[in-house]
Structures are given as C-alpha cells and as structure tokens.
Design a protein around this nucleic acid. Structure first.
Length: 431
RNA sequence: GGAGAGAUGUCUGAGUGGUUGAAGGAGCACGCCUGGAAAGCGUGUGUAUCUUAACGGGUACCGAGGGUUCGAAUCCCUCUCUCUCCGCCA
C-alpha cells in the first residue's frame, strides 16, 4: 500500500512512478483517480464529524458535571438530542468515505523503484549475469525422461486431481524431499536464516497484508464456507508473522526461511506449459523472507538473491539472473530479480526463482513497523525470494543431469540427501 | 461439535455509564543521590489521523463489528480468538 499522505504530498512523483509500470493515472474511476477524489471527500467529512464530536463531548461533559453537582441539565439535554443524531449521520458518512478510500488504496500497485528499467514486455528484461555452461546437445523433455524412468506419473496426477498435477515415484519423490532438506539446511547453516514452519491456509486479512488480495482472488484457491485461502507462496504466512507489530530496530534485519507447499489456480495461464511439471497447481518451495529497514532494502535484495543463486551453484545448474523491467514486475514489488535455470530440452532459460524488494508497501498493508530509539514507528521494508521452487529444480536436475543411457547424474552436493545415490537409473520400483 | 470462563497500554493489574487515554505496580528513559553500583527520591513514558511555522490543540482507539444513551472500557446483540471441561480424533 502506498502512503496515504503521498497522494497529497508527492502527487507528481507518485503519478509518474505508477504510470511507468502501466497503471492508469488519468481515469477518474481508476484506483489512483478514485483515491484522489476520496482522499478529499474523506478528509472533509472527517473534519466535519470531528468538530461535531468535539461539541458533543464538551456538552456531555457539562451535563455530567451538572448532574454530579445536582444541578438541572435539561436545557443541555434537549439541545443534544438533535445534535447527536446529526453526529451519527456525518460519522457514518465519514466512515463510509474512509472505507472506500482504503479500498481504492489497496488496489494501487507499488510505485517502481527508480532503478527499475522501463520496458513494454518481458522481452525488455535485462540480463545481469550468467553462471555455468549450458549444455547444447539434444536432451529429451523432462516429462519424457521422467516417464521413461518411471519416476514421474502425469496420468496418475490427472486421475487423482486433474491437469497440472503430478505424482512423483521412487527416486523423484526422494529427490523432491532431498532438495527441500538441502535447501533449508543450506540457508540455515550457511546463510544464517531462522527456519519457520507455517500454516498453508491463511485468512483474508493475511492475504491482504502481502498484496494477494483484494486484486488477485481469482488466482487463489478459496476454502468453501470459510473466508480462508490456500497460500500461493510462503511469503504470505511468513511475512505476516509480524503483522500489526512494532519491532525494535536492533532486531532487524530478520531473515526467515520456510518450506511450504504452494497452491495456484493459474487462472490467467490457460494453455501455457500444459505438459510436464513446470506449471503446477501445487508445488513445493523453499522461500526466503527478509524484514528490514527502507534504507537497507536494496542491499538486502542483492544478498537475498545471492543466497538463492548459491543453491543453483551448489547444484551445478547453469542459470542467469535478469532484472525485471517495468512491464513485467509484480503488483506489490518495487524491484525484482528473476533467476532463470537452463533447460536443455527447451534450449532456453526458465524462471526458477523470483527475488523482490517490496519497499514499505507490504509493511504498510500488514501493519509491520519498527522503531528506532525514541522515533516514531515506521513501516518495515520486506523482501522475499524463492530459493528455490523445488519442482522446477527437479526438472532442471533431470534435464541437465541426463545421460545418453537415460540415467540422471545427481549433483555431488545433493548425494548425501539421497542416501548417497550418485545417479538415477531406470526405475526398479514396482509401481 | 456441546458447556463454561475470559480478552484493558511494553508487561502486570484496577475500573461505580459522566473531567478515564484510562488508577496502582513493574519495566524503560532522563535527573538527583553515590567513589562506582544497588536501593531510594523526582520527572517522563501508547498508536493513528487532522490542524499548527512551532508550542499546542481536535478526533478516534480498552479483541472486532453493530446497538442503546446527551454521554459507553463499563449496558445489549453478533463475530473472532484464548483458556477449562466433555465429545471426536492424527
């Protein structure tokens, strides 16, 4: 959420930053347009209500004093009879205007950081660096590799749940579990993160705190009969761990990692990546979350991204890092780096991690603040990134580790997590 | 799911419908005292928002939302959460 006072105090800069990411800053019925009008209306009504309240409080106090002293207060009582009805009416109007104003604010995206490159589509994203040497020989798609080995079963997934669900068997199931352990251990032991384990179902307020709601309800699985949702990412519960809290500046930055399953309806991506495990309704992910100060947000973004990169490097997976341009950046983010892993079957890099700084956008929404000494509390800056999406990591390992004989080489760092397994041979399971 | 109890500030803990933003205590900050510390004494110590150059002032907030009333932390209704007991379960 943007700072509500910025509408008045830094209108031009705000408009420009919003326009750069493609938000409508002209139409009166756009969130930005509505926010401007409602800000004025809301403050006018509030001022009126407050002066009426002040008068009411004064007279009520007087009545109390008179009654306490045994004096007659019937004149004041009569006068206040009508006045109080008027107070209530204006109060109700002011409340309504404020609610509409707040609702409009929640639909305004995060103004981009000035360092974000402008662009008109994802093609304008900027490559920052590459790591590793991509193999250029012909490699089958992971769905063929996995099916041949008998460790990925797409038909079973479809039978059990529908499209975009997969059953992992034997070595693949173990690989999924091993990757999760490996990633968590690395972040906790080498990068100093505090591990948490959180609910995969959250309520509406929590979903609103990180920005998934109110705009993106269609992308979420909602529980029937309850105002609760399956999380699309651990970002939601982990960041909201601190909702409505005032943290001591000395306790920042806070860095958490968490494993959770993630659930996405993929409503807007019908037809894309229908084969294989790239785009699933349910997938596993290890997420990194930083809670810090506004000043430190960008340097923390570099660190957080480096922590995600460390996983790819340890797994010997070639990747590149791109900075998202203004057209491709998410609603809540201020600045985003994507990590894209090399998929030899597609001869291209595919997103495997997205690391973002949200500035104070989420801190404001979720009421997460910090205090420096005796200063006034101010919203924290938040960051998060995947490190990594486990399903896509598994895909990358299958394709990058594929050998001509159909077996898969396991990266050395991962072998201890697979009971010492060095390669996946054709499946020997009786599944 | 059934029955009961509860939710007040950083914490603890009062609160009779009327100068209560909220007693008392603890904690914290500053000052005095001290060789230094402890103890003691004194002062201060919520959030949001509007307004003001500033000092200051207004308003709202005692789990959330409604209602009664001139006036609600206090009375009524609904909801959420916590605790205890029962039932059911991993």
């Amino acid at each position: 959420m943007i700072d509500r006072q910025s509408i008045r105090r830094s209108f031009d800069e705000m408009s420009a930053a919003l326009a750069r990411r493609g938000a409508d800053v002209v139409a009166p019925n756009s969130p930005w347009g509505r926010a401007q009008a409602l800000d004025i209306k809301q403050r006018e009504l509030k001022a009126e209500a407050e002066s009426l309240q002040a008068e009411r409080n004064k007279v009520s106090k007087l009545i109390g004093q008179k009654k306490g002293a045994g004096e007659d207060a019937s004149a004041e009582l009569a006068a206040m009879g009508n006045a109080s009805r008027q107070v209530k009416e204006i109060e109700a109007q002011a409340k309504e205007a404020d609610a509409q104003f707040s609702a409009a604010l929640l639909e305004i995206p995060n103004p981009l950081h000035e360092s974000v490159p402008s662009g008109s589509s994802e093609d304008d994203n900027i490559e920052i660096r590459r790591w590793g040497t991509p193999r250029s020989d012909e490699v089958p798609a992971h769905w063929d590799i996995g099916t041949d080995l008998g460790i990925l079963d797409f038909e079973a997934g479809a039978t059990l749940a529908g499209s975009r669900f997969t059953v992992l068997k034997g070595a693949a199931a173990r690989l999924e579990r091993g990757l999760m352990q490996f990633m968590l251990d690395t972040h906790v032991d080498k990068h100093g993160y505090d591990e948490v384990w959180v609910p995969a179902i959250v309520n509406r307020k929590t979903m609103t705190g990180t920005g998934q709601l109110p705009k993106f309800e269609d992308d979420l699985y909602k529980l029937e009969g309850e105002d609760a949702f399956l999380i699309p990412t651990a970002e939601v519960p982990v960041t909201n761990l601190y909702q409505d809290q005032i943290l001591d500046a000395s306790s920042l930055p806070r860095r958490h990692c968490a494993y959770t399953p993630c659930f996405r309806r993929e409503a807007g991506s019908a037809g894309r990546d229908m084969r294989g495990m790239i785009r699933q309704h349910q997938f596993d992910k290890v997420e990194l979350v930083h809670i810090t100060t506004a000043e430190r947000a960008l340097s923390e973004l570099e660190e957080l991204t480096a922590h995600a990169e460390a996983i790819l490097q340890a797994l010997e997976l070639p990747y590149r890092m791109v900075e998202l341009c203004s057209a491709d950046i998410g609603f809540s983010a201020q600045k985003t780096y994507d990590l894209e892993v090399w998929l030899p079957s597609q001869q291209c890099y595919r997103e495997i991690s997205s690391c973002s700084s949200f500035g104070q956008f989420q801190g404001r929404r979720a009421g997460i603040r910090y205090r420096e000494e005796s200063d006034k509390p101010q919203p924290v800056a938040t960051l998060n990134g995947s490190a990594l999406a486990i399903g896509r990591t598994l895909v990358a390992i299958l394709e990058n580790g594929w050998q001509q004989d159909g077996s898969i080489l396991i990266p050395t760092a991962l072998q201890p997590y697979l009971g010492g397994m060095k390669s996946i041979q054709s499946n020997t399971l009786t599944l």
